[in-house]
């Protein structure tokens, strides 16, 4: 339940604003000038807000599509990302969004049409390159799909460009935008996963791993390409057994012909971000892990990272090809 929705005056009559507000008839609507008046203020407590976030409907002015950081790709020469939303309805303790914004409120940019224009421009200016777009860098790309309809909207753009890949990265079990249309070979539905035992403690408010696997299996069987993102890899007692069980469970339950890629990434936080997140959640079990400062990042020691990555990679190679495996390093 969203109790309060702040709406920028300029987009009060935008069709998407009306579409979204129609879903929250009991919420209090407060008119604002710019979303930054609420979202960018420094005197906010992220943790308290996270327990009861508000929604902010806003107009995005620029930077609709940005080049993805180095190390974010899955094989293309050019990678871009876009976010129609800031923040996430889930509350995963390792997530960088906790240290990214001072507010835990959700911002939804309603001018989807401007994303379309930017995406098309980039596609047209990169006709000779293999290009992948990523949706869901500053948010989960599908978690609020029933409110925004963004994925369904953006699929219609990419249907016209079958040579251009788009990845939706998510923990959501939203299936509707995909089950209601024909599978598209340039769309990758990428799911973040970790052993259930760890997820129970770390992926607060997110669907369980078993539910995610059921949805992955269903979408793969319908013909959608699947990405598996084991990012971050989490250390702890019996981690080998836990990851072996998870990987075997997935590989044995999905149609592997539709598995696009698998990536592994270590737990890592920029130093400043770790400090902020630790301040918010000092009693979090995750921070009792053997974490230390390595190359300006707080992470597991390199030996632990390498052992975990190679264990998972070697196990995966029994089921998939090496060229399907990537390392997340951002």
């Amino acid at each position: 339940m969203i109790e309060t929705i702040y709406v920028e005056e300029a987009i009060q009559n935008h069709p998407k604003t009306k579409f979204i507000l129609n879903k929250f008839k009991k919420s209090r609507i407060i008119s604002i000038n710019k979303y930054g008046e609420i979202f960018n203020k420094r005197n906010q407590n992220f943790r308290i807000q996270k327990a009861n976030p508000c929604l902010i409907l806003a107009h995005k002015k620029d930077n609709f599509v940005l080049p993805a950081p180095e190390g974010f790709g899955i094989g293309s020469s050019k990678n871009f990302y876009f976010s129609h939303m800031y923040n996430c309805i889930y509350d995963c303790r390792y997530c960088f969004l906790q240290g990214m914004y001072s507010s835990a409120n959700y911002v939804i940019f309603v001018n989807f049409e401007d994303f379309d224009i930017s995406i098309k421009k980039i596609i047209e200016s990169n006709v000779d390159s293999k290009v992948t777009f990523f949706s869901g860098y500053d948010c989960d790309s599908l978690a609020l799909e029933n409110v925004t309809g963004f994925a369904k909207h953006i699929l219609s753009i990419f249907r016209k460009y079958p040579q251009i890949e788009i990845e939706f990265r998510t923990k959501s079990i939203q299936k509707e935008p995909f089950l209601s249309v024909k599978p598209m070979r340039n769309v990758i539905l990428a799911y973040s996963l970790m052993p259930e035992l760890m997820s129970n403690s770390l992926d607060n408010k997110a669907p369980s791993i078993s539910k995610r696997i059921r949805v992955i299996s269903e979408l793969a069987s319908k013909g959608w390409k699947i990405g598996l993102r084991f990012d971050p890899l989490i250390h702890g007692e019996n981690w080998k057994e836990l990851y072996q069980e998870l990987l075997e469970n997935i590989y044995n339950n999905i149609f592997l012909d539709n598995l696009h890629s698998v990536s592994f990434g270590s737990l890592r936080f920029p130093k400043r971000m770790f400090k902020d997140i630790f301040k918010l959640y000092p009693n979090e079990p995750l921070f009792t892990s053997p974490l230390s400062l390595n190359n300006k990042m707080i992470s597991y020691d390199i030996e632990i990272e390498e052992e975990m990555t190679s264990f998972c990679k070697n196990l995966s190679l029994k089921y998939i090809n090496e060229n399907q495996i990537f390392k997340c390093s951002i």
Partner: peptide
């Protein structure tokens, strides 16, 4: 002590 800690995730 922290470096040697192996989290038992079933406890949390």
């Amino acid at each position: 002590k922290i470096k040697n800690n192996l989290i038992n995730w079933s406890k949390f």
